[in-house]
Each structure stands twice: as structure tokens, then as C-alpha cells.
Design a protein around this nucleic acid. Structure first.
Lengths: 254, 254
DNA sequence: ATATTTCATTCAGTATTGTCGAACTTAATT
DNA sequence: AATTAAGTTCGACAATACTGAATGAAATAT
């Protein structure tokens, strides 16, 4: 057993799975072994095991490896087990049809936002994401809406020493971010003005559970050119209203 | 290393993940350890590792374990990597709006069908499944449509000695099944007449890739009371037509 | 055609590592 | 306060995973 009470070979197996991403869907054994600094035959044993159980598939022709269908099954179980999804879905759909912009439901996992559910805009220029995908919390609508209700010291601990800058608008100063979170708490909504992607604006609001914790968030994301100054008031009202209604369904009483 | 070239602790870790299902979303350490015949502390080490990486979450209050959000992420990558989904989605949606029944895209994994994409009927009595979930191939629309193009001996090898009966209509005789598959090949479509669930009827058709392999299938599933004799001809035409069009988009030439 | 390179895969010996059992906590129940 | 039933921690030992080298297979270069 590892010093931290973990099992080395399982750590390594998961590291193998983590080598894959939307951008790197196919990998060779050698690539994986090199990346993780594993002996080729060690990596081979791990991959053989993952493959046997369907967590990894191997292309017969190219011999390359990719994530396996078993993960689709496991992911499906996780998705179904997220109770908030069913509750929030009608509200998300309603916002989408009102605004015709992409709407997300998400939650905080450490310093990241995980998207749990979505309703995509039908417009040809629209925001597209994958359920289960992650984004840094400090520069996204849902992320900031939720961070605003996390204890300040915890927020500071979550953030790395050097906050990564994605655009000129990214808030990289910790004090400034803390101020921003205060403001969000006062207003009850968050605004991501192109802080992660240029041209992408986002309005978020927190959802509270029966214990009063801001455990989820929703947001509307669209091209900045459509989420304009004069439209934003309306969007904020709609998002806050939906978030409040979902909170109430979760048993939250203010 | 295991006799089969696999890594024991990874085998066990995956066995732990497989303990969970839609029906068993929360488990205790002891339950898992008992089920897999592992020492409690062995199971604990494995679970600690899975938890550290987010493949398993632990409820703070009840201490119970459940599958973690990381699996949602990995499942999302798998889903995005399935190219056929994007191609087939418009056709699936079209069938759904024509028939207002649930439509599936699926593939064969050994002896099981895996659902890759769906469009759900809007009617209140409708078929609901989860993407990534599995069904035995020999008693489902997509499954039979695809098995019909698998080499007969391989089909026989896939099937267990005793074919499980789910309803009075389940085909449990191997010879009869082989005959059924021949018929399906002739007709170009499959019919699942309440073979897995009483009251559920399903029309399926195979999709061929550029190499001529029946590598996917689509199906329409609905309550038998709506998928009636006089409606079925129309459904068959629609399903076959869509399957053909998708096959052509994949580069299949007859 | 043959040599060369680049992969994936297999194998046996060794030392690292995972596993076991027992002890310890914590919380709920009697 | 005692008892049960859970999760967690720890040290010792032996089973197990890992290494490194050899083998196979396929593609590319000569």
C-alpha cells in the first residue's frame, strides 16, 4: 500500500484513463507509457486489464487505444443518480426557449465547475459543451455564483498562487476576486464577462438546497454580441427566478 | 501479474465500480467487501484510491459510497468520440417526430446491445432508457438486426447454453433464433415482439459502414398497444429508410 | 526483396507492493 | 453504560506487480 493509503496500480490505471481527453481520443501504448513514465510492459499490463473490462477499447487496425463503452455505462449511472437534474431540467428548458441561448446546470467540485445538465440554443452560433466536462470555477458564471457562498479562506486555499489568465478580462488578482464574490452575494447573480473565452458572456445564479448550501448553479451562456447591456437585465431576472424556484423545490426556505 | 496478464488490484477496482448500478446507487464498504469476497481493509484501500481520483464519492453523512463525477467526465469523452452519433442524430430525431415513439441508436458489444443515442417520445407512456445502458442482443430490436449479420457460429458461441427467458415470447431455442436471424437478413429489418418486456414492441434495422459491416443499428420502441399490426408496415419503411440513409452517409455502397 | 524501424506483446526472476488480520474509532442502538 | 456495527489505520509477510530483455508483427526505407 502506498504511503497515502492508496493502491499504486489503481492510481496508475486511473492515470492511464486520464491521459485521454476530448482532444486526445486515441493513444498508443508507447505514448501512454512515456507520458506516465511507466515501463512499457507495466503500462501494457494495466491497459490489458482496463481493456478486458471494457474501460478501454483497442482499434483492431491501428492498435491504438481509446476509452471504452463501459465508461459510457458508468457515466450513465452517475448521470441518472443526480437527482437535481430531473428537478432542474424543466426550468432549464424553459429558459432556453425564452432566450434561445445555451443553459447549464452545474456543481462545484473543488476548484472546478462540473456541468451536470444542459439545454442548448438552437441558433447556429451557440455555446456547446459536454455534460461532465469541467471548467475553472473562478472565471465562469456558475463557478463564481457558487464560490460566492464558499467560506473566503477556503476559496483562497482552492486557488493556486498564480491564477491563470485566459483573456484580458480574467480576474487574476485574489483580492479583486474576493471583492467580486462579495458583490455576487449582494446581487444574487454572477456575470462572466468574457473571463474564460473572448466573446462569451454568461449570467449565473446559485441554487440552494434544504440545508441552505449553495450546492448547484445555473447559467445562461451566449455570444457576447447577443448578451448585451440592454438584454442583460431581463436575463438576470429570468435566471434568478428559475434558480429560486429550483431552490424551493429542493426544500430551501429563505 | 495475474495468470491472464492482468493486474489483480485493477481487476478488483473495476469489480468495485461494477457493484454499482441504476438500482444500487449507494453502497457501504462492508457490502462491497462482502460481495466481492475481499477483506474489508483491502476493499478500503481500493475505494480510497478510487475516491481520491473522483471515480467514487462518499456521502459525508451516511458514509455510503456512490459513483463519482469523474465518471461523468470520462463517459462524456466516450460519448463525444462516437462519430456515428452526430451523423445519426438528425435521422433519429426525424423518426421520433414522425412517430412520436422512442428511437435508439445502438451497437453490439459481445452479446449485448449498448445504446449510444436516443430521441425519446413525448407521450406520457413511453420507453425510457439511459445512454450507455445494455440489453441482451437476442431479444431486442437493434440486437437482432445486428446479430443477423454476424457469422452464425459466432452467434452460437456468444449465447450461453441456457438462453434466459424474459417473457413467453422470448426466443430461447437456438435453432429457432438462427432461423429468425435468417428471416431478418431477408427482410432487412427486425421485430422484437415483447421478447424482453411484455407490452414493449420494437422495430429495428441494421446500419452498414463503409466496409459493409453491420456495425450499428437503430430501432423504434413503443408500447405494443401503439405499435400495432396496421401501423407496423409504415414504421418498418421509416426505420429501414433512415438506416439506409445513415449507411450511405457512412460510405456504404450496396 | 531485404533491412530497418517502430510498435505491441510475452515471459521469468526479483523486490516491491498489496493484502491480511488485528486493533482502533466513531456512532448508533440496546 | 454496554453492545453492536460500521469505517479506518497499521505493521508484517508473502503474494504480486514490475522490470528489462526477448520476441512478434507490421510498416517504412533501402
Amino acid at each position: 500500500m502506498n504511503s497515502k493509503g492508496r493502491v499504486q496500480s489503481i492510481d496508475r490505471a486511473i492515470a492511464v484513463l486520464n491521459c485521454f481527453s476530448l482532444k486526445r481520443q486515441e493513444l498508443r501504448l508507447t505514448e501512454i507509457a512515456d507520458e506516465l513514465d511507466l515501463n512499457k510492459s507495466t503500462a501494457h499490463g494495466i491497459i490489458t486489464t482496463l481493456k478486458y473490462h471494457g474501460l478501454i477499447d483497442q482499434d483492431e487496425e491501428s492498435q491504438k487505444y481509446r476509452l471504452g463503452l463501459k465508461l459510457l455505462e458508468l457515466g450513465g449511472i452517475v448521470k441518472e443518480s443526480i437527482g437535481i437534474r430531473e428537478i432542474a431540467k424543466p426550468y432549464i428548458d424553459e429558459i432556453r426557449s425564452k432566450l434561445e441561448e445555451t443553459v447549464h446546470l452545474g456543481t462545484l467540485d473543488k476548484k472546478e465547475v462540473v456541468y451536470l445538465e444542459k439545454a442548448e440554443s438552437h441558433q447556429s452560433m451557440r455555446i456547446v459543451t459536454t455534460i461532465g466536462s469541467r471548467m475553472p470555477a473562478y472565471c465562469t458564471g456558475i463557478g463564481k455564483a457558487m464560490l460566492a457562498y464558499v467560506d473566503e479562506q477556503t476559496v483562497l486555499d482552492l486557488l493556486p498562487d498564480e491564477i491563470e489568465r485566459f483573456t484580458p478580462n480574467t480576474i487574476t488578482d485574489k483580492n479583486q476576486l474576493i471583492e467580486e464574490l462579495k458583490k455576487i452575494r449582494d446581487q444574487g447573480y454572477s456575470l462572466d464577462n468574457q473571463e474564460h473565452d473572448l466573446g462569451l458572456t454568461c449570467v449565473g445564479a446559485p441554487i440552494f438546497d434544504n440545508l441552505g448550501n449553495a450546492s448547484y448553479g445555473i447559467s445562461v451562456s451566449g455570444p457576447s454580441i447577443r448578451i448585451t447591456e440592454d438584454r442583460i437585465k431581463e436575463i438576470i431576472t429570468i435566471v434568478k427566478d428559475a434558480a429560486d424556484k429550483i431552490s424551493r423545490e429542493l426544500g430551501y426556505c429563505e
